[in-house]
Amino acid sequence: MSGDLLFFIEISLAGLGSGALLALTALAFVLIYKATRVVNLAVSEVLMLGGYLFFAFAAGLGLSAWVALPLSILGGGLLGGIVERGVIRPMLGENPISVFMVTVGLGSILVGMAELIWGAEPKSLPAFISTTPLFLGEAYVSRKIAVAFVVAGVTISVFLALFRFWRGGVALRATATDQAAAYSCGINVPGVFSVAWIVGCATAAGAGVLLGAIGGISTTMGVFGLSALVVVIVGGLDSILGALIGGLALGLIQSWASTYLGGEYTSVVTFGLLIVAMMIRPYGLFGTHEIERL
């Protein structure tokens, strides 16, 4: 195999790895949006907080990584539940922009809290994934990225299956389609809201731990969430499949752009893509277009 081609494959594999993390974060956006029609920008900060919680449990309290990881995920879920009950539920029925701005405000609060508790300087997480490289054929893949890819892939597949076959998943889909109708069918719509926020934020926190394991944690790591937001807009805000495909695709594109054009081109390519996609398919590649009645 020629060196150029091998290099390209390695770059692409790394891209798929970070794409899987993007997909996982995008999944958090989609879950919350599907149930409550809220674009929760604070997903980015929950992701950051997931990384810090892991740091606190594993480095601060000295817990084993296998205890710290579920605790961080639980922490994210707990935060999601509290936020949904305390802040989002009272905003029910308000204009979506207001609710969006509430989540922007929440994000700011979370960043400030993290800085108050842990300080502003970046930290690295205690290693819990072995660093021995992995080889797919001749191509080198970082083991952390491979683990991230597998975890994200499995999680998203589980969610896709749950949505199709589990009663709760059906309830969520019903709620997404028509809240009032779902409510009158005896579906516990407020319950669905809570579950969606808890699961969504837990997912984001988990993604944060994986992201932190690869690149370290900082209070500004939430910007990763902006890329995930691009994924959900391009893939469709209410489409899990869109999150998966969009995440992997954006991971690849970002990886190629930063290697062949230069790191500074990543964001311009990402957002350029977003604008082009929006002009062609305003409601995402896999999203549903809502028709406005006169």
Binding site: V102, V104, G105, L106, G107, S108, I109, L110, G112, M113
Partner: peptide
């Protein structure tokens, strides 16, 4: 950090 928190809290508080 306190400014960051207060900034967010003002947005959330006013909206609610």
């Amino acid at each position: 950090p306190v400014r960051t928190v207060v900034f967010g809290a003002l947005i959330v508080g006013f909206l609610i």
